[in-house]
Every structure is written in C-alpha cells, then in structure tokens.
Design a binder for these strands. Structure first.
Lengths: 234, 234
DNA sequence: CTTCATATTATGTCTAGACATAATGGCCCA
DNA sequence: TGGGCCATTATGTCTAGACATAATATGAAG
C-alpha cells in the first residue's frame, strides 16, 4: 500500500479554503469531483470526502448528490454570540463583582413541580450593573433548593451543576421602568438591553432568566469566522 | 465482508447524545474507548471515530490522545445569532418591503481607496423599520460603484456579490436622537436596538453598517443547540 | 526518592474497495 | 410536445487493516 503523505486532508482543506477566500472560486462555483481531487492530490477518495465534509461543517461548501460540491454562499447572517457569565465578565474587567439577592421565593404550583424564583442585582465596582430575574424548575434541578442564592449568583451556580442544555436567547432594547431605572441608578425610560434566556435539558425547561443592562454600560458582541474551522471550547 | 447496518454512525451519535442529555453521562465522564464502542455497536472503529468526531464538532465531546473521550462541559455562554437580511425578514413576515435611499455619496480619501457612503431606510408595510448607514470599501468591492443603491438595499446586493467574509457584530441599546426618532416614526429618546457590523474579506475591511431598529418592533434571537449536529444552510 | 527513558495505549489519520442513495438528464412512449 | 421512467453519476457511508502521534504509566538508573 502506498504510504500516505503527512496530512493530505488538511492540505486539501486549506487549499480549497484559500481558493475560496481569494475569490478564485466564487460562491456557486462547482468544485472538481472527488475522484479528480483524489487523483490531483494523490490520495484516496475517502480522504477528499473527509476534507470536504469538514468544509461543509465550516459552512464553506455545500454538497449535493450527483450534482457535486459547490462553494457555499456566505451565510453572513449567522454569527456566534458570546453570552457572558456576569461574574466572569466583571472580574475580567478588573472590577469587583458582587451579587445581591433581593428575593428568593419557592413557588408551589398546584399539581406541578415547584419553581424557585430569584431576583437580584449584579454589581460591578459597587455600581449596579444588571438586574436579574430568574426562575428555576426544581423538578429538573432539585439540588437548587439547597443552594444559597443569597451569596452566589444563580447563573454561576447553574453553570457548575447542570449537565447539559440547549438555550434560546432573545435580545431586545427596552425603556427602563421607574423601578428598574432606580435599581440601575439611571433615569426612568433610559434605553436598556434586555437579555432573556430560556434553557432546556433535552426538551424540559430548566431555567428562565431575564437580565437587564443599562444600554450605556453594556453591549453584546457576535463574531462570524468563515471557515476557520476553529473549535475553541475554552 | 460483513455488511453494514443502515446507519451505525448516526445510531452511535444519537445514543451517546441521549446519554449526555439525560444526564446519565455527566460532563467530564469518560466515554468508553473506541474499540469497546466498536465492539458494542458491531461496527468498525473508524465508524465510531467518525461519530465521535461529529460530537466533537457539535461541542458535546472532547477527545484527548491516550486519555480518551470525555463528555464536554456545556458552553452555555455561546449561541448562534441569526442576523437577518432585512428584505428577507420582512418578506417572511408577509409584509411589503421597501428600501429608500437617502444619500449615496462617494468619498475620496486622500491617497487611500475611495469609499461609498450609503444612508437609507428599510420599510415594512410602508412603516419605517430600520435606519441604515453603510460604508463600502470600493477597493475591495469595485463593482459596488456600478450598483444602483437607490433601488436595491446594499446589504442584499452585497450578499449576492461578495465572495466571502468574516464579520463582527456589536449589539447595543441606545436612545434615539431627535432625527433618528423622526425617521423611525417614534419619539425622541425611545429605546432602540443598534446593530453594528464590520465585515472583512480575509483581513481587509469590506463594509461597515450601522442599523437602528425601534426597540418595540424588533428583537434578536440566538440559539444554542447542544449537539443536534444540524446543518441547515438553506 | 527523584528523574529520565521506554513501553503501552487510545486517539488521529489514511487507504482501497464496496455498496447505498439520490438527483439529473436523456430516452421512450403517449 | 409533454410526462414519466431509468441509467448514470457523484456523493454518502462503511469496512478492515495499517501506521502515526501523543500522553500516560512504568520501570530502571542515578
């Protein structure tokens, strides 16, 4: 058997990538068929296929049976948003972080499982940074009943204790109510960024949060990196 | 050669996925070694490896040489945000879409390449939906000089003509200025969602946009889907 | 008792060949 | 001319085996 070159798949991927990035192969361009690529790079078709599969995962390429592989049209409208853990975010800024709980209430729901309702404020350098209002489903996270949310912010606690989740975030600009404005040390009607997050484990709800930030103190960043193929789970 | 079951890789992936989702295998848990999984599922090791590779791509699993494969810790703080093409978004709502350009100016920059400055308004059902202010680098997109941005929104045009990009979005809540409020048919100081996007081709800037939405008419959604492995570029 | 070399182990990658599947494009028939 | 069937073709998936690589564990030497 012919011995393999060190990294054919990688070479193929990077070659195609650079052709796409350079504009030589524009969106919609048909990529040579796998057989031909295999011949050109001197490797097995499975290797070409793997390289193409990675490019598909990166969003650079689309493949259709019989039709062939094509340079994908740029999905400019999707990007990875980093939703901060507030304790981390503020610590990273070098400011003192503090969490102050205003209310921790266990709600008994007739027939259904109980929920925990937690309201509080995140402080950065002793100034109010975000209002938080959270509901935790005790059926999914029974251990939450024992946690002391007067001391630790529930988001931080949950991150460390929940097995796995999927989540949906909704970002919206709203005007602060009088009460919210007071809590955030701003004026009534001020523009605020509201982040709502629903979290599930499988298909069962785990927690719902609403976080409210002063518009002049916080913004969200989302990045779209075409085809780097980077996986950096940190 | 033993014939393969219809979809072993998929079966393996879904099985492991469900164990992770159910909490049976918690974050950090070691997944059985590939040999054992291959034996258990009655398939080749390469197939197990492929299934695991997909789970890694989905962020559910981490693999380390010699050490083994492990259930990853949930990266709850990242989610995929879908940034809409406004023409599409509004059409999808079943409302009439209209773009109105207010100014299209070519700026000559001494020594450097020219830029195109475009300001306009997106309308949904004849009501102002978003203000847009955009700069296009003509050095990167010379064809833009010929486009008629009085008729077609530049975002839509660019989507169809730019080879490939990476992008950075910043989302912020701001109060509308008097002029912005007037253009958006709301009142001065109203909470608005501002989306700024810088787009590059390779490392060279292509375009910068600032879009302003009325807070009560628009929100952004970001999803974090653990391990569905869904690729839906459509 | 520590340190370094080495064997072991589990993942990483590749090959050559086989069969599956779906979409296209042309052919045949009405 | 129009519509439906079918062969072709390119991707999709899998197998069994081989070698590469990195990290750990072990054992030997100082």
């Amino acid at each position: 058997m012919t011995r393999a070159a060190p990294n054919p798949a990688r070479r193929i991927r990077e070659d195609i990538e650079s052709r796409i990035h350079s504009g030589e192969w524009r969106p919609g361009t048909r990529i040579p068929i796998e057989q031909e690529l295999a011949a050109r790079y001197g490797c097995a078709r499975a290797t070409v296929s793997k390289a193409l599969a990675e490019l598909v995962a990166a969003g650079l390429v689309e493949r259709r049976r019989k039709a062939g592989s094509f340079v994908a049209h740029p999905p400019v409208h999707s990007a990875v948003m980093t939703v901060p853990d507030l304790a981390e975010l503020i610590a990273a800024r070098g400011e003192a972080y503090r969490w102050e709980a205003r209310a921790v209430v266990r709600r008994k729901n007739a027939g259904e499982a109980d929920t925990l309702q937690i309201d509080g404020i995140h402080f950065a350098a002793d100034e109010p940074f975000a209002l938080e209002s959270r509901t935790i489903e005790l059926a999914e996270v029974p251990a939450a009943a024992e946690a002391n949310f007067a001391v630790e912010a529930p988001g931080t606690w949950l991150l460390a204790h929940i097995p796995w989740t999927s989540a949906r975030h909704v970002v919206r600009a709203i005007a602060a109510t009088r009460a919210e404005a007071a809590a955030l040390a701003t004026n009534s009607g001020a523009a605020c960024l509201q982040l709502e997050r629903d979290t599930w484990r499988g298909d069962r709800p785990v927690t719902h949060v609403r976080q409210l930030f002063r518009g002049d103190r916080f913004d969200l960043v989302a990045e779209f990196q075409a085809g780097t193929g980077k996986r950096d789970p940190g």
